[in-house]
Amino acid sequence: MTVHAIHIFDRKGKTLFTKRYTSSKQSSTQDAEQLSEQRKLIFGMLFSLRELVGSLTPGNGSPALKSVRTGAGTLHCFETISGLRIAMYTNNNPIMNTIGARAPGADNTKTSFQTALKYIYSDIWVECVVRSPLYRPEDIQVDPVEGKENKSGRFDIKSTNFESKLDAYLASMPWFR
């Protein structure tokens, strides 16, 4: 499995959507807490890095943060000026990282992670979530902690076909295995 997880945050750091593609060994309750803590850290890191990069960038260059890479994996991020942040955690993908794929002339625009995240935003998120008549940006129900009471009247992303479209799209990518 190349894609480990995908998270979507709003401007304020609230998780709008989260999904993991690799299973973990821990029990589910313990897991939920840990994951929520993890997301908090991810957002915090992206936020701080963005601030730092913004203050380092000279002139009118774009300070957009694209990915954070470690020995074990890469966190790809995409942010819009409306404040949405999409973060996708993958391993250091061999397809993307071979020299051949980056060689001049090689067409990697179709498979690059930035393009993929942009597609997720513009063709899946906007299409399925923003256009949903029930969508209210400030009032999105996130489900991560199971058993937590559902406040009625809140918009749940699970009620749209965002997730199924996202899965279908990711599965069609060469780096998703």
Partner: peptide, 19 residues
């Protein structure tokens, strides 16, 4: 809602809105 619609399509028209 409109703003996301606009931003998601902005690149189509060849403008990098962020900059």
């Amino acid at each position: 809602r409109c703003v996301d619609e606009l931003l998601s399509k902005a690149d189509v028209a060849g403008m990098g809105l962020a900059t």
